[in-house]
Write a protein that binds this DNA or RNA. Structure first.
Lengths: 344, 344
DNA sequence: CTGAAAGCGCTTACAG
DNA sequence: CTGAAAGCGCTTACAG
């Protein structure tokens, strides 16, 4: 009961293995009748191509890799990654590509994983997540000539392909909305310093606030965890009369933590404090009041990245692809500030 | 600049390819001096074993598969899977095994994926998640003779290996704790019907409540989403004087949704309603009050599953492994019911 | 349109 | 301890 091979099919059909290969792969070189017969036999005996044999004879590994470099405690809690992966996966499955996943401790380990995957010919290409300012992984991948798509950018990606969205525009929309509601003291709880999109948002925040004449615009760095979100919020809200009336959080988890802190300090949301979460997720609608958030289709983002990577593997010349700009979804956590209403 | 092969090493070292293979794999058949020289050369020219070639010559694929059969919207939001995967992954990486991940629409698609993976020799074994009552995947895997470890059980797993935890004991501990606090009307919001652990918990709940003489013990089925959690909670809390004073939720997401509903209905937690979440996660500590929850080390659970699978692949005779029983972590969401306190 | 053969990069008996 | 050879299951020029 060994697994059937093309030799078995060839014997049954009375043709050569070469002919079987042509028939199975839809190549010219066999008559329609023969092809039909071969396909029927393959079907009947339950043949599957041995992926190792295919890969060894020069074809692709038909797998791509994703290495994730974040501590498990923040990875698990943020819906972003699973949604991204589900989008990536859907696109890959359509083309019978497998996704190989690995968690790594740091960037050096990540580069080592890429080098091994590529050396072993285990993957045909990789996704690069959590792009950093001056990211050492970019030149390493360029040097390896391993097909890669950066999820992030569009700057700092070197010659690699990328899929990105306009962080600055989304940030501006948010600040302008809060300003229109009457807020003048807006704070921002940023994500991990050093991540490119954190810096992009930070710069945009400073620029937009300056443009609107908001003096007190302050960004506080954080690490995406709920604990840090709580701690930072507590500090921001302890500033007495100078405390912000609105806070923009760089992820959903910190925004929810911030909401709990406000409630614990006796502040009403949105009356005393407006809250906006970046990257909407079902979590934002679980709490009371539901959180105003910046929404985008994350599975679609992943699917676009997968499409880019497959094109790169196919040897197409690809560059950067701009994905949808996150848009504001107003919910119950934002309103005019109490002081503004009092003054009205 | 082709990728170096053992032939290159053999040429440089002035030995045969066979000798190189023995040296590289730590097999007897070469002198220590030769082995040292060969290893040095391999290191120097940056050689990596071609995984396809290895797999083709009879060795393992050095990869295992995980197919997830849940809609992305519930997958992303539940930290459980990412934590499980991170534990699985850590164990696999230690042994240089890769993890192949695929999302599937239903059980038929999942079985088809297993069949293809195994037929292609793409994986050496698989994990089976979300075990159901009378799970059709179990006999399918048995028939394929594909090494597999069920994450769940211990019943209904046929001859497959499994890693499981004692759901009934954890449920009993929870109900006894709530009863000790003075609760008499306890409800349970269950997970997806048909999942084995949902049924195990349901049966345990009924049995324990009967044993304690709690008449009103009711289980309401759900689907793990926040929306359903809200809807069900609203219904439970609308029962007037007969409403439950404590609710046990089958996941963290529904528990948080339930908390928001209680607050929206003007009920205080834990004063008017106690809440327990099954599967503690960082989410439980993000809300106010933080949720009492059933905790366990999920990455360790995944690591144990990986260890079992690797053993099964190595041909060891393995059966079922009982993991840690989830234990109650009391936090701010549980207290004696207001009525009990009033009566005191 | 079809067949016979070489080759992908390894591993592993089998001789020396 | 070492070398030469066959074989894993495919693909792909190269002849007919």
């Amino acid at each position: 009961m060994k697994r059937p091979t093309i030799a078995d099919i060839a014997r049954r059909a009375g043709v050569s293995k070469g002919a079987v290969s042509y028939a199975l792969n839809g190549q010219p070189g066999v008559s329609e009748a023969t092809r039909r017969r071969i396909l029927d036999i393959a079907e009947e005996i339950g043949w599957n191509p041995n992926s190792a044999a295919r890969a060894l004879s020069g074809a692709n590994a038909k797998a791509v890799g994703l290495a994730l470099c974040r501590p498990a405690r923040t990875l698990g809690i943020e819906p972003f990654y699973m949604e991204l992966i589900s989008g990536v996966e859907a696109e890959l499955a359509d083309r019978s590509y497998a996704l190989t996943l690995q968690f790594v401790a740091d960037q050096a380990a990540e580069v080592a994983v890429y080098r091994r995957w590529w050396g072993e010919r285990r993957v045909d290409g990789v996704f690069l997540c959590d792009l950093r300012v001056d990211d050492r992984r970019v030149p390493a991948l360029e040097e390896m000539e391993l097909p890669a798509v950066v999820i992030g950018g569009p700057t700092g990606v070197g010659r690699l392909a990328s899929v990105w969205s306009d962080e600055a525009a989304a940030l501006a929309e948010t600040v302008e909305y809060l300003t229109a509601l009457g807020h003048r003291r807006i704070a921002r709880v940023g994500g991990l310093p050093g991540l490119l999109h954190t810096e992009q948002r930070g710069e945009a925040f400073t620029a937009v606030c300056r443009g609107l004449g908001l003096a007190d615009a302050v960004t506080v760095p954080s690490d995406y965890t709920g604990e840090e979100g709580s701690r930072v919020t507590r500090r921001l809200l302890s500033a007495g009369a100078n405390r912000p009336t609105a806070v923009i959080y760089d992820n959903d988890v910190m925004a929810i933590a911030g909401l709990a802190v406000a409630q614990e300090m006796g502040l009403s949301v949105p009356g005393d404090l407006s809250i906006v979460a970046w990257d909407d997720s079902p979590l934002c609608q679980l709490v009371h009041p539901p959180l105003t958030a910046l929404s985008r289709d994350i599975p679609a983002y992943g699917a676009n990245a997968a499409r880019q990577l497959l094109a790169a593997i196919a040897g197409e010349q690809i560059t950067s692809y701009q994905d949808e700009t996150p848009h504001l979804t107003p919910r119950g956590s934002t309103a005019p500030p109490a002081t503004a209403r009092g003054a009205a």
